[in-house]
Design a protein around this nucleic acid. Structure first.
Lengths: 340, 340
DNA sequence: CTGAAAGCGCTAACAC
DNA sequence: GTGTTAGCGCTTTCAG
């Protein structure tokens, strides 16, 4: 078979031969140029360019035990929060010379663990994770079995290195805003509460600030399935004691709540106020613009990577002491109005 | 230093020793079990389990010249279209035993090429790409320099293997819908037309079907920057000859157009009709729900991976002959109404 | 400043 | 069915 090797990639050996030096020198010319004389360095670089040389990543990884790949485990990319975060991760990883390998779990706890195992097998140098519940997570146990740095994004837990915002406090801001607008009958809407520690924290913040305001929260509205979420919410929007405000555990749910309200013939914010949480880019461009907590989603991703990279260069594991609480901001938006 | 190797990962050698067989047998037990007797297979698996053995990916890659990693190049994850597509890619890649490495280009053509180069260096087995313009793309030339399979997603070009929908035809559906509602003064809104072959195709479809309807298209409204898009659109919405319908090149722009209309005091769809394109999940849940072309975004990702995987198992390169045109559907939505 | 040699962990001929 | 051997492409002592 002719031309079998026509497109075979040049190896360090080929460069060495072509430049008339040893493979070791070629390696040095790239990885420790200061150890090589200017002349040979030029020789090597020319040969490399001529032959389109690219060092073979797996050979290097095998030898150095460093893959320069970071693993990422996220619930889904269908929620823009995580897509925005991943974009941040991708950016800062690329800037630091790392590639990323993302996996999505679709909120399945078992899948979280499988993703971690698969990434460990792939030999990633570190992990950024968004887990359902940091306090009891098989995935995190799996992570800790190996000596590899990891950082949690969005999760907030004293036993782990986390990059997050203060969800409980942020939620208080929303409730206070609504109370200030005269709302008294306020209900919270969330997905499956038990499936997300973030939702739980936001719920805790909701309860606490309702109490502080001397108000009784209306019964929690749980909408476990996307397909039926709008109807589920709608069902809670009738009767004389219907809520005048809905506090949603995230922006996606808020968007569905707005739709539910409209289907009930309620205008937002005139007849009912609705708040979100997350600050997805789209939410701010909607009409009405979402009243929500804007988290720095891309920044959460970027900072997670930075923590990892720091740990990697120092050959130390990040611990809960390196956790970061990033500032959020309240977007008044247009989906809240005076109670009537 | 004691315990230096306490957490070192077990190698195939360790398993061999522990099971009392040769490394080759261990390898076979995993990769070609039928070549190994039941008894030794059990022996090996027990040893592997005991020592938490995970085959080292880079060693395997180095040896077999197959990384089982697919590279992905996308404009951004901030547009849900691509996030949904990446989710599809991630799913089917995982199902087929592949990991993925995504890179984002933020629509920069130079960055596209850099991403490809970096993925090639990383040794990916194949590439899924969404490029700005398939007809003149340095990234694609870079790809073709190496003998690795690649597939374009969303791009539609006769010289490349593509997974896409018929953008031009789909756009006609939208225009016909508007014309059927009595609209005569219709304008198209898009980002930078020259920066995207998809926008160009949609624009061509717009022009063609306007012509077919015997209508003169209003001047194209280009909104190059996200930050000023809403104002840019707003500026085109006054005067007696203002458009009664806006055809937007994608859903994100449609959302901004809706906002622009509202800021001008125009109600959608009563005073003005607006169409999108893409079918992002969110768009269908908005109020008003977007009138748009729904592309099977996750499916586009999945099928791209399938094409790649087929090529990989057959050791053949996919060519333009394997291109796939996936069905789209028209979502009437609520953002279009009768012209008035 | 440069080269020789060993080996990272794995798989695939080839023997037996 | 199983073992032996060689080598994928690279980096890193160790000599010189």
């Amino acid at each position: 078979m002719p031309h079998r090797h026509r497109h075979a990639r040049a190896s360090i050996h080929d460069i060495a031969q072509s430049a008339g030096v040893s493979p070791a020198t070629v390696s040095r010319a790239f990885n420790a140029p200061e150890l090589v004389s200017e002349a040979t360095r030029a020789l090597v670089h020319h040969a490399a360019q001529r032959l389109h040389y690219r060092p073979n990543a797996s050979a290097r990884t095998l030898r150095t035990q460093r893959s320069h790949v970071l693993g990422v485990v996220l619930p889904t990319l269908t929620n823009p929060v995580f897509a925005e975060c991943l974009e941040g991760i991708a950016q800062s990883a690329a800037a630091a010379g790392y590639a990323i390998m993302p996996h999505t779990t679709d909120y399945h706890v078992a899948s979280e663990q499988a993703c971690v195992a698969s990434l460990q097998a792939a030999g990633v140098d570190g992990l950024v994770l968004v887990v359902s519940d940091a306090s009891r997570s098989p995935a995190l146990e799996q992570v800790r079995r190996e000596r590899r740095p990891y950082v949690l994004a969005y999760n907030q837990h004293p036993a782990h290195p986390c990059v997050s915002v203060e969800g409980e406090k942020a939620m208080a801001t929303l409730v206070e805003h609504l109370v200030g607008l005269g709302h008294r009958r306020i209900a919270m809407v969330c997905g499956q509460l038990h499936a997300s520690d973030r939702a739980q924290q936001r719920h805790a913040g909701f309860l606490a600030s309702m109490k502080a305001a001397g108000l009784d929260p209306l019964p929690l509205i749980e909408v476990p399935f996307v397909a039926t979420a709008i109807e589920d919410i709608e069902r809670n929007l009738s009767g004389p004691q219907r809520p005048t405000a809905l506090v949603c555990s995230n922006d996606l749910i808020a968007i569905r709540a707005i739709r539910a309200a409209h289907q009930r013939g309620l205008s937002v914010p005139r007849d009912i106020s609705i708040t979100g949480f997350d600050g997805i880019g789209l939410g701010l461009e909607l009409t009405p613009a979402l009243s929500t907590i804007v988290q720095p989603n891309a920044e959460i991703g970027r900072r997670s990577v930075e923590l990892l990279r720091d740990a990697l260069v120092r050959a130390t594991l990040p611990d809960s002491g390196s956790s970061l609480l990033l500032p959020y901001r309240f977007n008044a938006g247009e989906s809240c109005g005076l109670a009537r």
